[in-house]
């Protein structure tokens, strides 16, 4: 386990400021010539032009995380795909956001997340607002082709503001980043390595009664069922009930 990173500056403002010049940048996205402000990321420029790229770890206005890789796009001349949420635009860039290669790669990424995800959607409190499910449906991913061992962690339900189920965590790190942006003393940090890496509280202990009562930033932003508010049947629903049409 390593020391958590408490660096203060996590605001996106200023990232790539060394690239800021007066002139607008021209680039080509999916065959269309567009121009955008220097210092923007590919994702921001694409969204400004009405092109949506799926993201799971991105939080607008905060420093990019770059962990989920769902936002990868093809940039002419690049050996690999590039993460659009953290790559600044450059003059003359030629970008494909939905080429067959990109789509095939995104599918594998979602399948990899599902490979170790508990098969618990049927009874998951957040199933109707789950971003992972929505993205999987968009990419037409059904049963994953890959299998990996599941993480089984006990549900942490001692706290009356937040329930944590790390078996469902997709390690996007949004909660870590969101908490850092709200408080000087972040609740969560990353620990362990590889497949065993985990978002931990304290020294990897269950969330306790007085862990945090400040805001719900992390719960709101968690894309999976890993963080949720405790809810009793009959109380307000997160969203309308979910129906999947075959």
């Amino acid at each position: 386990m390593c020391a958590p990173d408490h660096s203060k500056n996590i605001n996106r403002v200023g990232l790539f400021s060394y690239l800021i010049v007066e002139k607008k940048i021209s680039l080509n996205i999916n065959g269309i010539n567009v121009s955008a402000r220097p210092g923007l990321t590919i994702l921001e420029a694409a969204r400004e032009n009405g092109i949506d790229i799926p993201t799971l770890c991105h939080i607008p206005d905060l420093l990019p995380i770059g962990a989920c890789r769902l936002c990868v796009v093809e940039v002419a001349g690049s050996r690999t795909l590039v993460g659009s949420c953290h790559t600044p635009i450059a003059e003359g860039m030629v970008i494909q956001t939905h080429s067959p290669k990109v789509i095939a790669t995104r599918r594998v990424l979602v399948e990899l997340m599902l490979a170790s995800h508990p098969d618990a959607c049927l009874i998951c409190d957040k199933a109707n607002i789950c971003e992972l499910r929505r993205i999987a449906a968009d990419l037409e991913v059904g049963l994953p082709r890959f299998r990996a061992r599941k993480h089984y962690f006990p549900v942490e339900d001692e706290n009356d503001r937040m329930v944590r189920d790390m078996s469902k965590c997709v390690q996007c790190r949004r909660c870590v980043m969101a908490c850092k942006s709200q408080s000087g003393q972040p609740l969560f940090s990353m620990a362990y390595r590889g497949f065993d890496s985990k978002v931990i509280y304290g020294n990897d202990q269950p969330l306790d009664r007085d862990a945090c009562r400040d805001c719900d930033a992390c719960i709101e932003i968690c894309p999976s069922g890993a963080l949720r508010k405790p809810r009793k049947p009959g109380e307000e629903r997160a969203d309308k009930a979910l129906f999947i049409k075959g």
Binding site: L109, L112, R193, G194
Partner: peptide
């Protein structure tokens, strides 16, 4: 490699584990 992956990004963290299995 699965053990030494830093675990930050999905393809490597999950992919090396799937491959090892």
């Amino acid at each position: 490699l699965a053990e030494e992956s830093c675990g930050k990004c999905t393809p490597c963290r999950q992919g090396t584990e799937v491959m090892a299995e």
